[in-house]
Design a protein around this nucleic acid. Structure first.
Lengths: 233, 233
DNA sequence: TTCGAACGGATTGTTGACAATTCCGTAGAC
DNA sequence: GTCTACGGAATTGTCAACAATCCGTTCGAA
């Protein structure tokens, strides 16, 4: 992805070209280079990404299924806009799925997995003290990825990967809620402790509590009331 | 216009042709008419479904995203086979997602939703007493669909719809485990009571307990040990 | 006989042209 | 002045031919 500064990926076989185009377009959407609601004209993308319409079309199909674009018959594709309500829905689904992943991780993680989780978690405190919220947010993302990987749960992993991509526009929103970073760190510590202690129930509960906190922060960031969606116990 | 070439589905607009082909092929896979691991040769499908390769190709792409077929570059597509391990994973994800849906349903369901849920639930007891396990299984499916609809949770609904399609080959497996139907009915009753009583926490817990039962039954059907995956409390 | 490499059939990936549909601006009627 | 019918441009959906790739088979040499 980031390794393709030059144009065209020029991979070995042409069959992988579609893959490169997909990665490129997806990255542009996720990074916000393409604004929401922006139209994605096939001929346009063909010229810009040096691909044929068939390739572009298959890529758009895939992105549609990933929830990043919307296509309407004979009307074309455009970048999907995710509103507050849907962001909450996605976070709710993330909550239960990551709860499942945390439970499994506490059961089946290898010592290497646990070491990786601890290593990432150890980064977070200093970053927060240094006030580097962006780096903290990135470490946060990596920690969640480590836990999901440690769960060895392919299905949950795949779904979470898609859901996370849809939420990119909101990822830096909660971290700027006053007091949220400190609470976030404490919640993460509870999750990590439970997983490292190999306590599945506590791990799941801690992860669910953590992401419920995220949901609340999401509402706070929107200036709305957090009580209406429930807090998942 | 389109009616001239003779055959073809002769639908109103051609844009819906791909949709029809998708529905047809998907139905064949879900119904089990196409066996797992069976190859899906594009030219074959073109002739059988009266569609061009472009259309067939887009349909296969979509089915791949839905997890019903697997495609390998230059090697073609085949019906995806879901093994025991993956069936358990999918059921685990279903468990937490339907738990979320049940919680939401208990909060936001309309009186019409509750009436529909009760109506379907009322069918189940008699069907079980009559020994019609297939009809019972279908009512079971409809009850779960009603609850998800009542939750008004688009994201959970979409994901569950896909997951359920992947599990069709296992749907009649648990119902034949001795004693399972009776236990299933009791679990359903608990779920319905909690939702109708508008108790979100109890609804979620009951639904999770129910689907944990399904997971155990899945293991019993496979002659394995149910303890290894946890029971979700 | 057995191993390896090249050949040929079968199948998928890609390309460009054609058909169908929608959208927007314009002209006309009331 | 406003609404409706029409027409052309832009765009997507579809189709059939071409190129690239994989797999089973055959031929040849050690």
């Amino acid at each position: 992805m980031a390794a393709a500064p030059g144009r065209r990926v020029a991979r070995s076989t042409q069959a992988q070209h579609a893959e490169a185009v997909h990665a490129q377009l997806r990255a542009e959407i996720v990074a916000g280079d393409l604004l929401p609601q922006q139209r994605l004209v096939e001929a346009d993308l063909c010229a810009r990404l040096h691909a044929s319409r068939g390739t572009v079309r298959s890529v758009l199909l895939r992105l549609e299924h990933e929830g990043l674009v919307v296509r309407e018959p004979y009307r074309g594709a455009h970048v999907r806009v995710i509103d507050e309500k849907e962001a909450v829905e996605i976070t709710q689904v993330r909550t239960v799925l990551e709860g499942l992943a945390a439970r499994q991780a506490a059961s089946v993680a290898t010592d290497e997995d646990l070491a990786a989780i601890r290593a990432v978690h150890a980064e977070m405190g200093p970053l927060l003290e240094a006030g580097d919220l962006l780096a903290y947010s990135d470490a946060n993302r990596r920690l969640h990825a480590c836990i999901v990987d440690a769960s060895r749960h392919g299905t949950a992993r795949r779904l979470l990967s898609e859901l996370r991509a849809q939420l990119v526009r909101f990822q830096y929103r909660t971290i700027f809620v006053p007091g949220r970073p400190q609470q976030s760190l404490a919640e993460h510590t509870a999750v990590v402790d439970a997983i490292v202690g190999r306590d599945p129930e506590r791990a799941a509960a801690a992860m669910i509590a953590h992401l419920s906190g995220v949901t609340s922060a999401l509402h706070s960031a929107a200036g709305r009331d957090a009580r209406s969606v429930g807090n998942f116990g």
